[in-house]
């Protein structure tokens, strides 16, 4: 963990060498999701509510998934841009260092400009929360926190799966963005507005539903049946990373036997 912060520090120093570009990109990242959020806003202005969800509830959904995405893109960027590490052969360098490949790839790149996006999502979150009447308790606050953490783990997991593919393809694969960008776009609305199979896919295969939709039912008092179950769903998202780690290690093993 200590080493992770040192990686963070050195890359932050590197980023600070290009200050103007940093501020411009951060501002850009701050502004981009506004267009998405504006779309959301006007949609609800026209229709009032969708399948029993009103504007602020969906805004909360939106804020959680965008926060998770921003944090993952910032801290797991190493996996997101992993193809360049393989293509240039710099991955060999990581293999001759006495640390796990996971930690080293994670530490190879951070995208600090994503704080712009994070900041924007936090504003949406605060606005949504202040307009909703939720009876807060320690457990509910923890659930909200876990939701974001769960999202970070899922996005990181997908980045890892995409990175693993690079061992075979060398080039990065845009197709994986279906699951990262696509998943984010889907999950910014409550999942029950979609077709059944879409809901199932994003609950059981890539569990974005456990990031915001299911636990939100608990937070907003929409859940039926066992509340505890809804509350604990973010844990499922966190578990998602385990098979990803396994697949990643398989990929590393493949790389070391083929050396491509």
């Amino acid at each position: 963990m200590n080493l992770y912060f040192n990686y963070l520090l050195i890359l932050f120093k590197s980023q600070m060498q290009y200050r103007t570009s940093f501020w411009l990109l951060t501002a850009g990242q701050f502004l981009v999701p506004f267009s998405l959020f504006a779309g959301l806003y006007f949609l609800f202005e026209r229709f009032g509510q969708i399948r029993g969800w009103d504007f602020f509830e969906v805004a909360l959904c939106f804020a959680v998934i965008h926060m998770a995405f921003a944090v993952s893109e910032c801290f797991a960027r190493g996996f997101d841009t992993f193809s360049s590490l393989v293509r240039t052969g710099d991955f060999d360098r990581l293999l001759v260092r006495p640390r796990s490949t996971f930690l080293q790839v994670l530490g190879s790149k951070f995208e600090f400009t994503r704080f712009g996006r994070l900041f924007q999502s936090i504003i949406v979150l605060v606005w949504a929360l202040s307009s909703l009447s939720i009876e807060w308790s320690v457990i509910k606050v923890m659930t909200l926190f876990l939701m974001v953490v769960s999202g970070v783990f899922i996005f990181t997991g997908i980045f890892m799966l995409a990175a693993t593919l690079c061992f075979w393809t060398i080039q990065g694969l845009e197709v994986v963005n279906i699951f990262t960008d696509g998943g984010r776009e889907m999950a910014q609305y409550p999942l029950n507005i979609y077709q059944k199979w879409v809901t199932r896919f994003f609950t059981f295969v890539i569990p974005f539903g456990t990031v915001n939709y299911l636990p939100l039912m608990y937070l907003l008092g929409k859940s039926e049946g066992n509340e505890l179950l809804y509350m604990l769903t973010p844990a499922a998202g966190i578990v998602f990373i385990l098979p990803c780690l396994l697949v990643w290690n398989l990929g590393v093993r493949h790389y070391r036997s083929t050396g491509s």
Binding site: N6, I10, S14
Partner: peptide, 17 residues
């Protein structure tokens, strides 16, 4: 590390090893 002083790279390597 390309954009930071050499000594910073050395210190990070110290932590890695």
């Amino acid at each position: 590390w390309w954009d930071v002083p050499v000594i910073d790279s050395f210190e990070l390597l110290r932590d890695i090893y």
